[in-house]
Amino acid sequence: MAASLRPAILRHIRIPVQPLGRHVLPSWLGSIRLMSGHGDDHLDRAEVVDRVLDVIKSFPKVDPSKVTPEVHFQNDLGLDSLDVVEIVMALEEEFKLEIPDKEADKIDSCPLAIEYIANHPMAG
């Protein structure tokens, strides 16, 4: 009884199998950075500039309209040295970097920050 009932039920609740394109990755996968990346997928320079400018513009003491890729933090934006430390730390978090203290201390303007991050193999 149970033996004949089983296939009948199974046939009834079967889910139709649809073939998937095996080598076609879903489109959302293209935008995800995989965990095992070795930094061989370098960041685009334009993207680095965009994200650096976004970080600086979102700093509360900065007037967003003054921010350009050539801006100097202390001379042009009117920040003090501790603000610059905070900006560099925000940039580190944005690009998942660990910048040694002595090198981070030398980053005092937008071009230097962009240069450092664009040339960093691990910037993500």
Partner: peptide, 13 residues
């Protein structure tokens, strides 16, 4: 000034 900047950075982290 450099000492203060680096100290602030470390303390913030």
């Amino acid at each position: 000034k450099e000492r203060v900047r680096i100290l602030y950075r470390r303390a913030l982290k």
